[in-house]
Amino acid sequence: MTTAHYIAMVAAFVLICAGGATGQTKGAIQSETAPPKLVMLVYQRFPFDKATESGKALAPQHVLV
């Protein structure tokens, strides 16, 4: 992975995380911090054991399933 590649991935993460999350169901039975009714689990593996480094940009990755 090149440095430019890494920087771009971090930038993507920062870009996405700049805003607040909306779309949460208000007035749901469970509280905000309780286990959700549904969970989407996204398992991601990176080559060359780069998981920690690449993980900085993972947040926007999983939403495009």
Binding site: M1, H5, A12, L38, V42, K50, P60, H62
Partner: peptide, 21 residues
Amino acid sequence: GKFQAQINSALASKRTIVAER
């Protein structure tokens, strides 16, 4: 979209599932 393509190119594998409580 460009960032997304870069991230995808760095992935070795990815698996997405949905499960219910």
